[in-house]
Design a binder for these strands. Sequence first.
DNA 1: ACTATTGTGATTAAGTGAGTGAACGGCTTT
DNA 2: AAAGCCGTTCACTCACTTAATCACAATAGT
Lengths: 279, 279
Amino acid sequence: MDDISNQDQAIELLQQLGLKEYEAKSFVALARRQHGTAKDISETSEVPRTRVYDAVRVLEWKGLVETQHSNPQVFRAVSIDEAINTLQSEYIDRTESLRGALSGLEPTDDEQTTEATHEVWSLSGDQGITSRAQQLIEGATNEVMLVVGHRSIFTAQLAEQLHAAQERGVDVIVGTVDKELRAEIQDVLPDIEVFVSGLNWLDQSPLPGDDTQISRLLLTDREAILVSSFTETTGDGREHEQGVFGRGFHNGLVAITRRLMATGLLFQDDPGEEDTAVS
Amino acid sequence: MDDISNQDQAIELLQQLGLKEYEAKSFVALARRQHGTAKDISETSEVPRTRVYDAVRVLEWKGLVETQHSNPQVFRAVSIDEAINTLQSEYIDRTESLRGALSGLEPTDDEQTTEATHEVWSLSGDQGITSRAQQLIEGATNEVMLVVGHRSIFTAQLAEQLHAAQERGVDVIVGTVDKELRAEIQDVLPDIEVFVSGLNWLDQSPLPGDDTQISRLLLTDREAILVSSFTETTGDGREHEQGVFGRGFHNGLVAITRRLMATGLLFQDDPGEEDTAVS
DNA sequence: ACTATTGTGATTAAGTGAGTGAACGGCTTT
DNA sequence: AAAGCCGTTCACTCACTTAATCACAATAGT
């Protein structure tokens, strides 16, 4: 049962990794039955027999399959670990080459128009958002206000960054959406103020049909802000983190957030059930 | 000059990593000029201006670009390191998922026809060939004969494997194509016999127009053989290692190799210039 | 020699991406 | 305020890649 799903998943993943449909199906078929002829593969993979040869030839070229040139030809899949290693090192090589190529790019000599005093950027993806949060926290000189909307974003790294900021004299204030998470974080960061936010709607949207989950809300030096949330836009089951980043004291977004967080965090160190947030 | 090449290379690599042409070009353009409008990107990237928006939207989704929703919109590329990290972790995630899915596959219950006594497999790719060589060396019980045809394949791992074989009582005999390589290997493996092979044609094909470079020639227990070579088949500049693997004492390929290596290696411990190899 | 099966190649259909242009809406300028 | 320009989105065509089928040559076994 589960193997059916595994099979489809493997085929899907292989295609995402650059294989064609026939190649992916043939490889999975071979992985299941260690070795087999074109006919065997065709029968267990729904790939037309006459196309198995092409697919397998590519797979061999990629180092995923070995071929016995007998009659009939017999094909064998390499071990799972070998296959994974081969694929991984292929992509690592490519990304490292890419790093070199990108580093060697000459910047265009066009006038780099200076930054506006207030900017609002939208970004996407776990990586980028986490990294932007890190930059903000590390660049803060006075104050860091953070609301953790989901436990998954409170990592050891984040804790370390907050601790470091606290150490160098920055006021660090952390808010959470529920008591459990608050206790958890307070435990890791004993010397930092951790509140339960009074902004109930952070955790659960008052709007029906809104399955957006706020994941973090960061305000540094009251002049830069990062808000991010999980949304399941594509139906592929995986959630995707999207966010907006704003900078500039007079930036409207930043101004609103400044007030919001002040209201929700500072006057709400004891969690009340009623929503006292927005005035 | 070199940057032109870097640019093209980066675009090519990004496409290999799954980006479309427009996406790759747009990203490279943005990477060069830190931030820019659709018009800017279009001018430095040859991407039609009206398609920049789609491309950049995808890039933002992948976490490689941030968008400022002003008018006109301004786009900014994330740092090179961030981009590389994002791409790498994306592929690592996929391969790890794949490992799980493949491991969970149920084997087909078809009759697994037993192996023929002599088999010849052809394989391809550095990884697979190296790994097969390792299996053979580690599985050897009596004798390992290896000719190193190119210094690039003599790795620390290989040396370690040979040493281990020697330690457990296996006769290990190593041949090389020239004196320099012989000295190098002998230095690393003092307790192993290292010869210069008399088979000159291993290093340089006597046939004109044959740019094939034999990379290794391995015979274990006189019953399994692995021959591999570098060929530049596709014009993409990168060399690809291909090989054949044979097993079974009476296997014709193995028999020939057995004689060949005996001739070339054992009776030729002092390198003569004349070819005395094939009788 | 005949037949069944394997392997190669040609051919067609379908889908995807590159490339182009039209239309809509907001902003600026006169 | 009107007109025009620019930015943005959308719809569409063309070309190319891939999926799918078929016809045929080669091989092995009977």
